[in-house]
Amino acid sequence: MTTNTLETLHDVRVLRCAADGPSLDGEAAALELIGDAFGHDAELVAVPVERVADEFFRLRSGVAGAVVQKFVNYRLLLAVLGDISSRVEASTALRDFVYEANQGGHLWFVPGHDALEDRLRR
Rank of each mutant, 00 (worst) to 15 (best):
Y74P: 01
D11Q: 15
P48K: 08
H40D: 13
A29N: 03
A18V: 05
L6H: 06
T5V: 13
V12R: 13
G26S: 11
D54G: 07
T5H: 09
D25R: 07
A42R: 07
A28E: 11
S61M: 12
G21S: 14
V14A: 03
H10D: 14
G82Q: 08
I34N: 12
F38H: 12
V52A: 10
V80D: 02
D11H: 15
F38A: 09
A53V: 07
A46R: 01
A42E: 08
L24K: 01
D54M: 06
F38Y: 14
A46K: 00
L24E: 00
V12L: 04
A46D: 02
R58C: 12
E55N: 09
N4M: 07
A28I: 10
R58A: 15
V14I: 09
A46P: 01
D54V: 06
E32F: 12
H40I: 07
L76I: 08
D25V: 03
V63G: 00
D54S: 13
L78G: 00
L31Q: 14
L44Y: 07
A66D: 11
V47R: 01
A30I: 03
R58E: 15
R60E: 15
A28H: 10
E32L: 13
T5I: 13
H10W: 10
F71E: 07
F56K: 03
V45P: 00
L33A: 00
D11F: 10
E50Y: 04
G26I: 10
L77S: 11
R13T: 10
G65F: 11
E43L: 04
R60N: 15
C17N: 00
V49C: 04
S23Y: 09
G26H: 10
E55T: 13
R16T: 02
E32M: 13
L6I: 12
K70E: 14
G82D: 07
V80K: 01
L76R: 11
D36M: 13
D20Y: 07
P48G: 09
V49W: 01
R13K: 15
E7Y: 03
D11K: 14
V80S: 01
A19G: 12
R13N: 09
V80L: 08
L6S: 08
V45Q: 00
V52D: 07
P22S: 11
N4Y: 05
N73D: 15
V68Y: 04
S61K: 10
L9D: 00
R51W: 04
V47W: 01
N73I: 13
R51L: 04
A30M: 06
T5F: 05
L76W: 06
A66H: 05
A46T: 02
